[in-house]
Design a protein around this nucleic acid. Structure first.
Length: 257
DNA sequence: ATGACTGAGCATCTCAGA
């Protein structure tokens, strides 16, 4: 089974990129982030024509997550359990598919909104950990894929690509990510590529792409039984070099059947 | 030393991104 995640920075701007990528890579499941649109204008027909059914959690202008799958699935949740009822940020989708639970996330960046914005990020991470703990306790095979907005270690950003006090690298952010790992989740890319740069994002500004000043912030985290099935984890960095690209590239994981 | 790009929307500026 091939599962992927991609922050597309507007699905309406990147509809063609995603369609061509699906045809080329043929994933079973693709999680999308930063749709920047409501469900009503998500280009579902384009992907249906390629054999992919969509489930969309949309919002005008900001955030937005979706899953595309060519195998049958059912949506289990559209909001991270524990968040306030009136929390309208479209950042979470959970589906049951292929005998496992799959979660797609767009984790809050945490650099905007001052202290409240950063506190929201940490609270979100604590709730995500609680959800992971519940699934582990229930012995459900699961994965969490998406834009985590976390560089887990100093090896996960190019020197100079980011400020030391950025919300993506701040100590409390990393502590939350580390806690998720120590619950028993495996960072798929790092499990197979333990050292060296594996960037998934390059800023549009300051020549970050030509200078290769990237970050590794898009991750696929596997529960123990899925980690045992992990055979490949790759980052499709060529997508960053295309015309009018997203600032993120796809991360792809292969699980043995 | 400095600036710097992209997208959406009650839009010709602001907010957010990371």
């Amino acid at each position: 089974m091939r599962v992927a995640t991609w922050n597309v920075n507007s699905i309406r701007q990147r509809e063609g990129h995603v369609a061509r990528w699906l045809e080329r890579v043929q994933p079973d499941v693709l999680f999308l982030q930063e749709l920047k649109c409501e469900e009503a204008v998500f280009p579902a027909a384009t992907f249906a024509a390629l054999g992919y059914q969509a489930a969309v959690v949309g919002q005008k202008a900001y955030n937005g997550v979706a899953v595309l799958a060519r195998t049958k699935f059912e949506v289990a949740d559209r909001r991270l359990p524990g968040l306030a009822e009136d929390d309208a940020q479209a950042r979470y989708i959970e589906v049951a598919c292929g005998g496992m639970t799959m979660i797609g996330i767009y984790l809050p960046n945490g650099n905007s909104g001052g202290d409240a914005g950063y506190d929201y990020k940490l609270a979100w991470m604590a709730l995500l950990r609680a959800r992971a703990a519940a699934l582990l306790a229930a012995d459900v095979p699961f994965l969490i894929a998406g834009d985590f907005n976390v560089c887990p270690t100093d090896g996960d950003f190019a020197p100079g690509a980011i400020s030391p006090d950025d919300a993506l690298v701040r100590a409390p952010t990393r502590a939350q990510f580390r806690a998720l790992e120590w619950l028993g989740l495996t960072d798929a890319v790092r499990a197979l590529h333990p050292t060296g740069p594996v960037w998934t994002f390059w800023d549009y500004q300051a020549g970050a792409w030509p200078r290769d000043l990237g970050l590794r912030i898009d991750h696929v985290m596997l529960s123990p039984t899925l980690a045992e099935r992990l055979v490949a984890a790759t980052v499709d960095r060529d997508e960053r070099g295309r015309e009018q690209p997203s600032d993120h590239v796809p991360v792809v994981v292969e699980l043995a059947d």
